[in-house]
Design a protein around this nucleic acid. Sequence first.
DNA 1: CATGTTTTGTACCTGTAGTTCAAGAAGTGT
DNA 2: ACACTTCTTGAACTACAGGTACAAAACATG
Lengths: 192, 192
Amino acid sequence: MGRPKQFDPDAAVEQAMDVFWRKGYAATTPQDLVDALGIGKGSLYNTFGSKHALFERALRRYRDSQAVALIEMLEESGPVKERLRAALWLLVEMDLADPDRRGCMAVNAAAELAGTDEMATELVRRMFDRTEEAFSALVEKGQRAGEIAPGRDARAVGSLLLTTVVGLRLMARVVEGPERLSRVIDATVDSL
Amino acid sequence: MGRPKQFDPDAAVEQAMDVFWRKGYAATTPQDLVDALGIGKGSLYNTFGSKHALFERALRRYRDSQAVALIEMLEESGPVKERLRAALWLLVEMDLADPDRRGCMAVNAAAELAGTDEMATELVRRMFDRTEEAFSALVEKGQRAGEIAPGRDARAVGSLLLTTVVGLRLMARVVEGPERLSRVIDATVDSL
DNA sequence: CATGTTTTGTACCTGTAGTTCAAGAAGTGT
DNA sequence: ACACTTCTTGAACTACAGGTACAAAACATG
């Protein structure tokens, strides 16, 4: 009933995610979005309501694609330390290869909006929580496999790994080559 | 020659730093600045030229006060590990105590502007470099004092510590209590 | 003081952010 | 074919961002 949408809202959210990811929230204008999504302003506001609402959808989409992908990588089977090293290295490699150097959208959102935007803060908080849990679970697995000393507090190591990843991805936006970051990854994994 | 300024430009930069620190670059309006600095728009633009130029001065001011303060803390004498632990803890404590949760201005600037704003990127890059050097120097000192295993690459540990601090300060903007962060600090220092 | 220089506050300007709306297009039920 | 609904397009609208222009006022210097 009624005229069907001429565009795919999910694909549009994906495009919007890209723009917000690259430019941040405040610096993204409705015009940027209209241009990127290839739809009219009317459709934009008719479908998504507001810039802020669209940003929320974009951030959720980020969680469901990117953040979840990391967690799933950590849950795969195989030697724990090598799995961890590979996951960290993949993130850093992707960040450095990105011509726009957008880093991690959750980290960016936290830096820009934590404290001001309750929705964004809460979403990022939960992403961080879930990621930390995945790290902790991986550490416990490594302890059961005898790869990691059983004396270490898996929860604390999980926090440490999350913090390192957050730091790495922020650093990857600023730093020149991969050397420093790869040293950080090695030092982190070797310390387990 | 001519009428002297009715306000102290250095104090004004300090105020501007506060505003930019709290709201970020894009979200800060000339009106915000005029209100915070307590001067008219005419004076603002007559003295500082543009919002961007004022932001540059504010970021430099941040480097000269905050970033340098951390480096100086690290250079003080005393047992290395305790010095390190105290410094990290002080940062986290300050971040958590801040009602606005502004975190580290350099980290925020990197997240918002890296890749887009050459000036900001370069300034942050240099702050990171200098901080990392201070960490590395501290590690070397710890090695000479027999506190830290001499086998470890001081430069790599410096990178690791910088990354951890960056991660911690970002996390401090989002996380609820101090427990997780203090665990991270302990795990980091204990791993040395 | 007279003079020249600088500051200051206000008014003003251009462009765009963020949103709304009117009018028409493309479907569905009868 | 007709009404009814939902979507699209693009113009229109309000507010404010970011910055400029200026005239009046405040000071330094001779």
